[in-house]
C-alpha cells in the first residue's frame, strides 16, 4: 500500500533537496519544486512503477502578491487511482516572467486546465498547443483573478469585537 511517507521518500531519493516544503494539510501530501523542474517531477510521478500518479485531477493557479519573485503558484492535483492516493504539487513563478512548461504532453486533460489558468492568472505554459483564453473574451487585456483587481469587500471589518464585550 502506497502511503504519503513512501511518496515523500521516493521524491527525496530522486530529486534530493530540490523538492521542498513537504506538508500534509488535511492528509493530502503537498510539496513544491522549482518551476523548471515541473515536468521532470510530473514525469517521475507518472512513470515510476511504484508511484503511478496517472490521473490529473486539476490544475489551477493562486496569486500571492506579497511574495516577491514567486507571486504565482501553479497547483497540480494528481491521483493514483490504483492505490487511491492523491498528491498536491506546486510550482511558484515570478509574475514578471510567468513561464511554466506545459503538461499537455503527459495529460490531454491539461489542455483546457492550462488555458483556464492562463486566462485568469496569465501563467504562460511553454509548449502548449493552443495557448489562448478560454472562458473570457479574447480581447481582454488583463488577468481578472489576480489580486490587484479586488471586488468590493462584503464582510465588515469596521466593527470591533471589544464593543461587544468579548476578547
Amino acid at each position: 500500500m502506497l502511503t504519503n511517507e513512501i511518496v515523500k521518500q521516493k521524491l527525496v531519493e530522486k530529486f534530493a533537496e530540490q523538492v521542498t516544503n513537504f506538508g500534509e494539510p488535511y492528509g493530502l501530501l503537498t510539496f513544491e519544486a522549482p518551476k523548471e523542474m515541473n515536468l521532470k517531477v510530473l514525469n517521475f510521478l507518472y512513470d515510476d512503477e511504484r508511484l503511478k500518479f496517472r490521473f490529473l485531477t486539476d490544475i489551477c493557479a493562486v496569486h500571492y502578491p506579497d511574495q516577491k519573485g514567486r507571486e504565482l503558484a501553479v497547483v497540480y492535483h494528481l491521483h493514483n487511482m490504483q492505490d487511491n492516493i492523491r498528491v498536491r504539487f506546486k510550482v511558484f513563478t515570478d509574475i514578471e516572467k510567468p513561464d511554466v512548461y506545459t503538461a499537455t504532453g503527459l495529460f490531454s486533460a491539461a489542455n483546457w486546465m492550462e488555458r483556464e489558468t492562463y486566462d485568469f492568472y496569465g501563467v504562460k505554459f511553454t509548449g502548449h498547443p493552443n495557448m489562448k483564453r478560454i472562458l473570457n473574451v479574447e480581447e481582454m487585456d488583463y488577468f481578472p483573478l489576480r489580486k490587484e483587481y479586488p471586488l468590493e469587500d462584503q464582510a465588515r471589518i469596521d466593527k470591533d469585537d471589544e464593543m461587544f464585550g468579548r476578547e
Partner: peptide, 17 residues
C-alpha cells in the same frame, strides 16, 4: 468554444463568506 455564461464565481467567492 465555451465561456458564454461565465460568471466568475471563483472571483466572487473571494469576497463572500
Amino acid at each position: 468554444t465555451v465561456g458564454y455564461i461565465h460568471r466568475a464565481f471563483e472571483k466572487i467567492a473571494e469576497r463572500r463568506t
